[in-house]
Amino acid sequence: MGELSEPGELISYELSVNGEVREVTDAWFGESLLYVLRERLGLWGSKNACEQGECGSCSVLLDGRLECACMVLAAGAIDSDIVTVEGLSPGGGELSDIQEAFVKEGAVQCGFCTPGLIVSVHDLFEHNPTPTDLEVREAISGNLCRCTGYGRILAAVRAVEIARRP
């Protein structure tokens, strides 16, 4: 195997994305999950900005854990359940209550960071239905937004928390 030094080696494998088995064919083995989702599987919800785990725009759930898809080796995720922002809405073009709240509260400006934030906020509520303001800030500390100044985002998260109270 001494001659694998060129990044030429192409492989094929299957991933479980949003409950479906998806085939990846003839892909370079070092591709990130973000690249594969966007460029090979046509799932453009996860955004590509920094490719170094800093901005959170590509946040996905990997076996229920919030991670940056750009930091995941796609070919290493063959045994994982991957959920992207596309997998979080009820389907049929409808919005989840979190997405709805982002729209209503003006938390979406240019919109680039929004999908990542939706996944992070979804993950927050999975683990903590009644987050304090500090807990919300910590939960979204890995998602950068250059437009809103975060005020409207925090308001949207609070609106979801209030609406979900029993």
């Binding site: 854990r65 919030l66 991670e67 930091m71 992070s120 910590e138 500390s141």
Partner: peptide, 9 residues
Amino acid sequence: VGSPQIRNA
């Protein structure tokens, strides 16, 4: 360390 995403991975 990092952010929730980084601490999970």
